[in-house]
């Protein structure tokens, strides 16, 4: 790849009036400028977003300082605000979602890309892409009407009987709570993982596969040891996309999480996520400190996404430089 002649950028091209006109006429320069502006728009939007969150959360930041991140109380009446239960709820539900969705999504993607007949694969992928476009309120309603009763009457009692000795599966089975929210998130993000991972696996060059098979690998060994590692970066990308969706998901989560800002060890307990509390309380919030505390929660969510994405990128960097396969 690196040895291929690059045509990106115009830095090395002659820079005189005549050359400029020639390039402008050819369209290269215009295309470069226009796409540059488009790319800058993203940067400007992000900067403005952070700036607004920063400015509008000033009062809460001065009032609570760093303690905001470690306080467990959220009390609009007595103006005591802390982000910890919301950060906890956001992280736990997203982690649960990924825990279920990653193996499921990756497995399905491997089947669709490597093992299924092409026609079946294409048709199923079409269905999966449809799933990705379903509005989140629909997933929330399905959660409320189907998953919640099932959780309360079947799944949670069963978990209590088998795994009830761990603190994770104790307490009353309400049906709604962190576990249910995590499962709804898993259902919502799985189409992203399948769809993107499948594309990435399909893009792996055939040589990779054939070389492994020629060395005597079985079909599964070739897939698991040669194709999947080759596509690792892309698969990780699909997982980030899913994670970002899970962290920011509002409607479906607020419908099934129980909306209670408490930190409990049990996954059956109700919890609260940052996005859900923003949606719930912003419109009726009065008082400057209350409002700016809500804005600061938005800032915390942004930072959380930022840090998690950074860590994930670091992880890729570490794993790819250690391994022998590059993309």
């Amino acid at each position: 790849m690196a040895s291929a002649p690059t045509i990106a950028g115009t830095a090395g091209l002659p820079w005189g009036p005549r050359a400029l006109i020639r390039r402008a006429r050819s369209g290269d320069e215009i295309a470069r400028l226009i796409t540059l502006v488009f790319a800058l728009v993203v940067v400007v939007l992000t900067v403005m977003l952070v700036e607004q969150l920063w400015v509008n959360s000033a009062e809460a930041r001065h009032h609570f300082g760093l303690a905001f991140l470690f306080t467990r109380t959220w009390d609009p009446v007595f103006s005591q605000f802390g982000a910890l239960p919301f950060v906890y709820g956001t992280l736990v539900t997203s982690a649960l979602g990924l825990l279920v969705a990653v193996p499921l999504g990756l497995g399905a993607a491997i089947f669709l890309a490597e093992l299924a007949p092409r026609r079946l694969s294409d048709n199923l992928t079409f269905l999966i892409d449809l799933l990705a476009a379903v509005p989140s309120v629909i997933y929330g309603l399905l959660g409320v009407f189907i998953l919640v009763p099932l959780m309360r009457t079947e799944i949670q009692p069963a978990l209590k009987r088998t795994l009830g000795f761990t603190p994770l599966f104790q307490g009353p089975a309400y049906g709604i709570g962190l576990l249910t929210a995590g499962l709804v998130l898993a259902v919502m993000i799985v189409p992203f993982i399948i769809s993107v991972s499948r594309e990435v696996l399909l893009a792996v060059p055939g040589d990779q596969r054939e070389a492994a098979l020629a060395l005597g690998a079985t079909r599964w060994e070739a897939t698991w040891k040669a194709v999947v590692p080759y596509a690792r970066t892309g698969i990780m990308g699909s997982i980030f996309l899913a994670l970002a969706r899970a962290l920011g998901e509002t409607m479906a989560v607020t419908m099934v999480i129980g909306n209670n800002p408490r930190i409990s060890a049990s996954l059956f307990a109700p919890g609260y996520s940052i996005a859900a509390v923003l949606a719930n309380e912003f419109s009726e919030a009065t008082g400057n400190l209350y409002l700016s505390a809500l804005v600061e929660l938005g800032l915390v969510l942004f930072l959380l996404t930022f840090v998690l994405n950074g860590l994930a990128r670091l992880l890729i960097l570490l794993t790819t430089s250690r391994g022998s396969v590059h993309t």
């Binding site: 009390d75 609009p76 005591q80 607020t254 909306n259």
Partner: peptide, 21 residues
Amino acid sequence: KVGKNTSVNWPVGLGGKGNEG
């Protein structure tokens, strides 16, 4: 302990969104 407001720090319970929730 709790006071009055459009949102309060509930001592117990589950939260539903809106009357329908």
